[in-house]
């Protein structure tokens, strides 16, 4: 009960409905500082189960910083401090008792630039299950690798060369390999930080298609600088401006009828 009290105790200037009916992640008054510079301030937002939500906004607005709060990747940056609360399944992930290892196993992440390890395709996918000790025999591991690659839509392209290095794939394939690597550890949420910005349109289309299938199993938070992409893939959209969450709502609504003037300016291309 106390937990729910916490969740209600917040203030927000955000326009629109920040709540979700079936929330997976609940963030309340999250502020992030880099040394003494405030990167985002008082962001509160729910992320629903098995929904795709996109975070948009001009560059430097703090959308990536906010995304990196969900798996505490900000911890790896020197001088970065996070205030506020983020609940994942009713557990505050910034609680002192929380270990980031299981948290990050539960919250997968895909980065802007494809970053496969300089290992074979097989080892790239098997890396997560191996370090977490998810399986203890070769057969199960083969199975996980195969299923992850299938779910990432890469299996048919690489099944004959699982031993060749992951870095030898094309950009789009590398990014799908990274998605396969993330889902191999059975996460519940996948964070994507501009996953298509380094890819050509055809590879982008493939990833976007993949996102729709993945949404059946995972909650997906995607940061994108492309409004079209946000419109195509996500159910809800959140607009960030200068470190603040300005407006959030159903994608269709945001793109056709934004309420806040800043959102309007961004959508219509006056700022960006």
């Amino acid at each position: 009960m106390e937990m729910n009290e916490d969740k209600k105790d917040f203030k927000t200037n955000t326009v629109g409905d920040i709540f979700s009916d079936n929330p997976k992640i609940v963030s309340r008054n999250v502020s992030v500082y880099y040394n003494d510079k405030k990167a985002i301030s008082d962001v509160s937002l729910d992320i629903g189960s098995k929904e795709i939500i996109s975070l948009i906004g001009p560059s430097g607005c703090g959308k990536s910083t906010f995304l990196r709060c969900f798996n505490r990747m900000n911890d790896t940056i020197d001088g970065c401090k996070v205030e506020g609360k983020i609940f994942l399944d009713n557990e505050n992930i910034y609680d002192e008792m929380i270990d980031v290892v299981p948290l990050r196993a539960k919250v997968g992440m895909v980065f802007q630039k494809p970053n496969p390890f300089p290992k074979s395709i097989y080892d790239n996918v098997a890396y997560g299950p191996r370090i977490h000790g998810l399986v203890d025999n070769k057969k199960d591991m083969d199975n996980i690798v195969e299923m992850s690659l299938k779910n990432a839509g890469l299996w048919d392209e690489v099944k004959d060369r699982l031993d060749s290095p992951g870095t030898g794939l094309s950009g789009g394939q590398q990014q799908r390999l990274c998605i396969a690597r993330a889902i191999a550890v059975s996460p519940e949420i996948i964070l994507m930080d501009e996953p298509c910005s380094a890819l050509d349109p055809i590879a982008t289309a493939k990833i976007e298609e993949l996102l729709q299938t993945l949404a059946n199993d995972y909650s997906i938070v995607i940061v994108t600088h492309s409004m079209q992409q946000a419109a195509r893939v996500s159910q809800r959209t959140a607009y960030f401006h200068l470190g603040e969450l300005v407006e959030v709502g159903y994608t269709k609504h945001i793109f056709t009828n934004p309420t806040d003037i800043k959102t309007q300016n961004y959508i219509t291309g006056r700022i960006g």
């Binding site: 790896t76 290892v101 948290l103 196993a105 980065f111 970053n115 300089p118 990274c178 993330a182 550890v185």
Partner: peptide, 19 residues
């Protein structure tokens, strides 16, 4: 980016270093 990939998958520091 390789370190990030390792940490994002839930590796501890020594796993990122050694593996």
């Amino acid at each position: 980016s390789l370190r990030d990939a390792g940490y994002a998958l839930g590796s501890t520091k020594n796993e990122v270093i050694l593996k």
